[in-house]
């Protein structure tokens, strides 16, 4: 059997396993898988920006939370049907990203990180303090996934299939974008903005568009999050979640989109298992993260690539680390 056919068979088997999941997996693990999927989407929006564009953004969770809030507010407070509420939620999240992008893409590296952190905190503050709109501390509750064409997405099985489809589709589209001329230009901007500028590329526009695309992806994750949880309150978009997304993405490796899925899976499982053993599970996750930064800054997928290269007797390399992605200093 050729290796190509083997890969094809493996992919086919994986697809069959994923699609048939609701029929054999105990329901709690199905719940966990749903969570892993929509948080993977959120992590992908981070990974796409950090890995392809060199932009480490702590504002993705704010976009995600905005989309979740808008969906919850429209559906429960104003009786808007899902068919209008979902597009409006996606549009609001993406619009927020478009506004933040104006400020954020002017900066690079650590400045970008700081500014997105601050912008993200604004949204958290508004969610917390603007009580008449967001319900403040309580948040907005009572949201339920709709029934569409006779399919009740309230049931975990159909909800799972929907999230799976959305994640695969979004991942595939992002993959296409990464390998398109736009994606290559984005890589160029990441590695050497000045050269790209000299070559006549609209550097800021490219970064801006990437930021908006990532915003749309985060908004999609926000919609699933809101329907899954049924309650949206400020903890949906607090800094803890931002740091969490950062941790899972770096752990998985920002070099490829699949890293987002791997990182999310590992941390969600780790959290579920370790939290039963010790209440200090955040310390353990923090340590794992610290060790990743120190010893495997290119994450799990990066390590894997390096290993594969070594096996194939290619030039050994540690793979790109987060610091190789983008110039350090800010252009002004």
């Amino acid at each position: 059997m050729t290796s190509r056919a083997l890969v094809f068979l493996l992919v086919l088997a994986a697809a069959a396993a994923l699609i048939s999941l609701p029929w054999w997996m105990p329901s709690f693990y199905l719940t966990l898988t749903i969570r892993i999927l929509f948080f993977s989407l959120l992590a992908m929006s981070f990974t796409f920006l950090a890995g392809q564009g060199g932009m480490v953004s702590l504002a993705q969770v704010a976009v995600f939370g905005t989309s979740a809030y808008v969906l919850a507010i429209l559906s429960t407070q104003h009786g808007v049907a899902w068919s209008a509420a979902v597009p409006l939620a996606l549009a609001s999240g993406t619009t927020l990203a478009a506004v933040f992008g104006v400020f954020a893409v002017r900066t690079l590296g650590i400045y970008f990180l700081m500014i997105t952190l601050a912008l993200g905190q604004i949204v958290w503050g508004v969610a917390f303090q603007w009580v008449s709109m967001t319900g403040g501390f309580d948040g907005i509750g009572g949201l339920r996934a709709p029934t569409v064409l006779g399919v009740a997405f309230r049931s975990p099985e159909s909800f799972y299939l929907l999230v799976l489809a959305a994640t695969v589709l979004t991942g595939w589209l992002l993959h296409r974008i990464i390998n398109s001329p736009f994606g290559l230009a984005l890589n160029g901007v990441r590695d050497s903005p000045t050269r790209m500028q000299a070559l006549g590329y609209p550097v800021s526009l490219i970064r801006y568009l990437a930021f908006v695309v990532a915003g749309l992806v985060a908004s999609i994750a926000g919609v699933f999050f809101a329907y899954f949880t049924g309650v949206v309150n400020p903890s949906a978009l607090d800094l803890f979640r931002s740091v969490w997304v950062l941790v899972v993405s770096i752990l998985g490796g920002v070099g490829s989109l699949i890293g987002a899925v791997i990182g999310t899976t590992i941390v969600v499982l780790l959290q579920t298992v370790v939290s039963q053993i010790t209440p200090r599970y955040m310390t353990i996750i923090g340590l794992v993260f610290l060790l990743t930064i120190l010893f495997a800054p290119d994450g799990i997928t990066g390590r894997f690539h390096a290993l594969r290269k070594r096996l194939k007797r290619e030039r050994p390399s540690g793979g790109p680390t987060i610091d190789d992605r983008g110039p350090v200093e800010r252009e002004v």
């Binding site: 950062l246 200090r280 996750i285 610290l290 610091d323």
Partner: peptide, 25 residues
């Protein structure tokens, strides 16, 4: 991680997470 600007900041985030959890305990 001297000289790797982003790694320095990310490491600080990891440290902050650990310190916050230990403080809680």
């Amino acid at each position: 991680v001297r000289g790797k600007v982003l790694s320095e900041s990310l490491m600080a985030i990891g440290l902050a997470t650990i310190l916050a959890d230990l403080a809680l305990s």
